[in-house]
Design a protein around this nucleic acid. Structure first.
Length: 284
DNA sequence: CTCGGAGCCTGTCTGC
DNA sequence: TGCAGACAGGCTCCGA
């Protein structure tokens, strides 16, 4: 369930390992993944960056970009040749359990000094090759960019009748926010998830904007969120799960007001968590 | 144009 | 113990 902070973490840590690596070939092991891997032959990785929820590899020479979308269960793991002991790109101390995960190996970037392996249990992830960075760049606003002022957010929210929680998940408006952080941001901003997105006051938008940036930044500082009950706790080993106030806490008492209980509701087929007491629906 | 729902996919958990 | 069904969820597609 990588969202912006998890993808940012993966991109940053991957950058420390693979910049300067020369790709020999890109091998696809899943019929769902297609592309001309030969294009990458003898190209050198010059940069790794996050664009929305995608990890994008930049190459030196004529324009060529590889975008990896991790979706739900995708993981990128750098396995150096010499060390013999592979490790997660996002966590050097990670003990890799080969037998358990080899089945989900979907693609391999063969490089001079090792392999960058793409694992994806549920096969939702994608790898895309493009000569145009513009094509790969998501349309939505980057929530931590200079362009994302509260006024810009207000403009985007304007006129939408969609419930706020579902609006936050729309990548064509705002990129990077997923199910976990949407609940956390709304809790922090004391906004009910079913509040119509376009109906917020100026003050509420300012608060939403401030809390969104604070939570995403704090999550990045903690290397994202990892759930211990997740199939195997590999990939990014962040610690932000220790800071989650509402997500996955149905029935628990609110840590803020200490009186309300955390409720769960389904919006657009996905779980939303909120405090029944301090996230009131606005009077319409 | 906006919005909601189905479908994609597989491992885990729950109930019978 | 074994099986069926529900569930997790980012994103695209389709229909209203």
């Amino acid at each position: 369930m990588p969202e912006l902070p998890e993808v940012e973490t993966v991109a940053r840590q991957l950058a420390t390992s693979i910049i300067g690596e020369r790709v020999e070939k890109l091998e696809f092991l899943d019929s769902k993944l297609v592309g001309d891997g030969v294009l990458l032959a003898a190209r050198t990785i010059s940069s790794v960056q996050r664009l929305g929820k995608q990890v994008v590899l930049f190459f030196s020479g004529s324009p060529l970009f590889v975008s990896v979308h991790l979706r739900m269960t995708g993981r990128l793991i750098w396995e150096p040749k010499k060390l013999g002991k592979p490790f997660a790109a996002s966590e050097p101390r990670y003990v890799f359990e080969k037998a358990a995960t080899e089945k989900s190996l979907r693609a391999i970037f063969h490089c001079t000094h090792g392999c960058l392996k793409f694992y994806d249990t549920r096969r939702f992830g994608t790898i895309e090759l493009s000569t145009s960075l513009e094509k790969l760049t998501p349309r939505g606003l980057e929530p931590l960019s200079d362009a994302c002022t509260w006024e810009a957010l207000w403009q985007l929210l304007n006129r939408s009748h969609q419930p706020l929680k579902q609006w936050l998940l729309r990548q064509d408006r705002l990129v990077g926010i997923g199910n976990i952080y949407a609940s956390e941001i709304l809790f922090a901003a004391k906004l009910h998830p079913q509040t119509p997105a376009g109906g917020l006051s100026k003050r509420e938008v300012q608060c939403l904007h401030r809390e969104m940036q604070r939570i995403l930044q704090e999550a990045i500082d903690n290397c994202g969120t990892t759930f211990s009950d997740f199939q195997d706790t590999s990939g990014s080993l962040g610690s932000y799960q220790n800071f989650l106030q509402v997500y996955g806490r149905e029935g628990e008492r609110c840590t803020r007001c200490r009186r309300g209980l955390i409720q769960r509701l389904t919006q657009g087929g996905r779980s939303t968590f909120y405090c029944e007491r301090c996230q009131k629906m606005p009077r319409s």
